[in-house]
């Protein structure tokens, strides 16, 4: 049993390397894109910092967060945007095509888990600059904010970032799965993206109603604010546990929802 699981994981890792190797080789054909993506990233970062500076320039503090602390939140948000454009958008947008053209049949027939195949089939290198910039901003701002680099803080921070990536993945995958019923729901990811823009600022910066919404309904608080608190080494234990619980529940939910949706899938021709 143990060895079977081990070899299963190895098989998935080998597959992953093949998937991403071919995807990168294909994307490298478009080198001009790199320049455009770098410019877009620089513009987006400059714009976000500018908006933040408008708030702080007046001598206000956003929800009790100092300028450097708020920049950590912005860094986490940039990092997550990068993850979304590297992994989530390129993969999950193809699910729509598969359902429309009936090629999902071929995916389901492959001798590998269909959720794994759909979530990891390709990778786009154009989100990597954003991931790098996000990390750089986090490190720079956290040091300026006086965060310690103790192993315990670093471990908690890494764990919280992993949890927030898992939550982000669950949200995207849940919306992508609804494609099985409503072929044209891809725009729903645009709504998600617009709402997640709220995560560029600490959750305490919003009025009560929005704060509740972004914690309980759409877990934006767990995406950026909680990881930022962990990085700054001031997160409360209960929030950390809650974040891991939300991530676990999200992953289980999207797994179950995918299985449930497949029961309703009848290929394009039948």
């Amino acid at each position: 049993m143990g060895s079977a699981r081990g070899s299963g994981l190895r098989r998935h890792l080998i597959t992953l390397r093949r998937f991403w190797g071919t995807a990168l080789a294909g994307q490298m054909e478009y080198q001009l894109n790199l320049l455009i993506e770098l410019l877009a990233m620089a513009g987006n970062m400059a714009g976000s910092v500018f908006v933040l500076s408008l708030v702080y320039g007046q001598g206000h503090r956003l929800g009790g967060w100092s300028w450097e602390q708020a920049l950590v939140v912005l860094g986490v948000s940039t990092l997550l945007d990068g993850v979304a454009s590297t992994l989530l958008r390129p993969n999950l947008s193809t699910l729509v095509t598969h359902v429309q053209q009936g090629t999902l049949d071929f995916v389901l027939l492959k001798p590998i888990d269909s959720q794994f195949w759909i979530s990891t089939r390709t990778v786009s290198p154009w989100g990597l600059p954003e991931i790098g910039a996000g990390l750089a901003l986090i490190v720079w701002a956290a040091r300026r904010a006086g965060a310690s680099a103790e192993p315990a803080t670093l471990t908690t921070a890494a764990l919280m970032l992993l949890a927030s990536v898992a939550i982000l993945y669950s949200l995207w995958f849940l919306i992508a799965t609804t494609t099985i019923w409503f072929v044209k729901t891809w725009n729903a990811t645009e709504v998600l993206r617009a709402a997640l823009a709220a995560g560029r600022y600490p959750i305490t910066a919003y009025p009560g109603g929005l704060r509740t919404f972004f914690t309980l309904v759409l877990p934006v608080a767990f995406l950026t604010t909680v990881p930022a608190e962990a990085i700054l080494g001031r997160a409360a234990g209960s929030w950390l546990l809650l974040s891991v619980a939300v991530a676990g529940a999200g992953l289980l939910l999207c797994r179950g929802f995918w299985r449930f949706a497949l029961r309703f899938y009848t290929s394009a021709s039948s």
Binding site: V55, Q58, H60, L62, A194, A197, A198, A205, Y206, P207
Partner: peptide
């Protein structure tokens, strides 16, 4: 919806 999110932020400021 972005303007509404930003309204939330600015109104607190």
């Amino acid at each position: 919806v972005l303007p509404f999110i930003m309204l939330g932020l600015w109104s607190q400021v």
